[in-house]
Amino acid sequence: MKQIITHVTHYRYTAPVTYSIQTLRLTPRDDEHQRVLRWHIEAPGALERQVDAYGNITHTLTLNRPHTDIELRVVGQVVVGALARGALGGEDSRLPVHAYCVQTALTQADDTIQAFTRHALPDGLNTPDDALALARAICDRVAYEPGMTDVTTAANQVLAMGHGVCQDHAHLFLACARGLGVPARYVSGYLYTTAEHAASHAWADIWLPGAGWTSVDITNRQFASECHCRLAVARDYDSASPVRGVRNGGGDESMAVTVQVQTAAQQ
């Protein structure tokens, strides 16, 4: 599937920012099943390109002059191939698989999460079908409801609240898998869909014996497919977020994001 993607992020500040630095993970990964045809990031300054420890393409934007807003505009085309039951092919794997067994502040498997996992998967997490069963159990327990959580909400809080978004579903999935000692990682990216809220999306990859990395869209209770364009992978949102930065000054911050994903047939 050829996806045509437009992604605009606009930060506004109530007072001048004297210095800011942003890390942008806004360029799709070069994986076996997806290929970038063209891609352009428009930013209010020079961008320094790197590849991070997870194999993600990143850009650093540094602004040393006073500013009261930052607009980042991305436009591009990506061809994404079909995935058989979510199975991923070759990729830029810079870390050993078991690096993704490490729990983080957002994906700690406490007693409540471990009990939930045992109930959802009494025979363990061994196959792609088990991964789908876990996704279904998470969605049954945690209803999709925007505005109830934020980027600091940890997996155990999500389970207790029973509400969240795709990011929260992914973190809970990672906590359950890692609690069983199964490697799993967070994925940020785009989803082609007719559902308005889901163009910017998050899901998870899990490493299974005999299957390798298998990609699962927890929120939609399905394997990832040619509808999913991958931007970044990491242990959790903190290291895979599309835009992350620090600043001096600026007062209060507001952010507006618009994402549009179309197919070539729609053009």
Rank of each mutant, 00 (worst) to 15 (best):
residue 126 N to W: 14
residue 224 A to H: 09
residue 31 D to H: 02
residue 14 T to V: 01
residue 143 A to T: 13
residue 239 S to V: 11
residue 163 H to V: 07
residue 254 S to R: 13
residue 38 R to Y: 08
residue 162 G to F: 02
residue 39 W to K: 15
residue 132 L to I: 08
residue 260 Q to S: 13
residue 155 A to Q: 08
residue 177 A to E: 00
residue 230 R to E: 08
residue 219 T to L: 02
residue 131 A to W: 07
residue 194 T to C: 00
residue 256 A to L: 12
residue 118 R to P: 10
residue 168 D to P: 05
residue 174 L to T: 04
residue 12 R to M: 03
residue 217 D to P: 05
residue 231 L to D: 12
residue 81 G to V: 10
residue 234 A to R: 07
residue 185 R to G: 05
residue 44 P to W: 09
residue 262 Q to H: 11
residue 79 V to K: 05
residue 30 D to L: 12
residue 22 Q to Y: 06
residue 4 I to Y: 01
residue 254 S to H: 13
residue 139 C to T: 15
residue 66 P to L: 11
residue 100 Y to E: 04
residue 63 L to I: 11
residue 107 T to W: 06
residue 90 G to R: 12
residue 132 L to A: 10
residue 144 Y to N: 06
residue 157 Q to L: 11
residue 127 T to K: 07
residue 119 H to Q: 15
residue 44 P to R: 11
residue 16 P to Q: 02
residue 91 E to A: 15
residue 157 Q to F: 08
residue 71 E to R: 12
residue 68 T to A: 03
residue 176 C to D: 01
residue 132 L to V: 15
residue 220 N to T: 02
residue 37 L to I: 09
residue 90 G to Y: 13
residue 96 P to W: 01
residue 179 G to L: 02
residue 171 H to M: 03
residue 195 A to P: 04
residue 40 H to P: 10
residue 124 G to I: 09
residue 92 D to R: 13
residue 139 C to P: 14
residue 245 G to L: 03
residue 253 E to G: 05
residue 127 T to S: 14
residue 175 A to P: 00
residue 160 A to Y: 02
residue 175 A to T: 00
residue 257 V to D: 07
residue 172 L to D: 01
residue 110 D to K: 10
residue 222 Q to C: 13
residue 147 G to L: 14
residue 161 M to F: 03
residue 136 R to K: 14
residue 247 R to A: 07
residue 130 D to E: 04
residue 150 D to R: 12
residue 9 T to K: 06
residue 157 Q to C: 13
residue 218 I to Q: 00
residue 194 T to L: 01
residue 112 T to D: 09
residue 233 V to A: 12
residue 86 G to C: 02
residue 9 T to D: 05
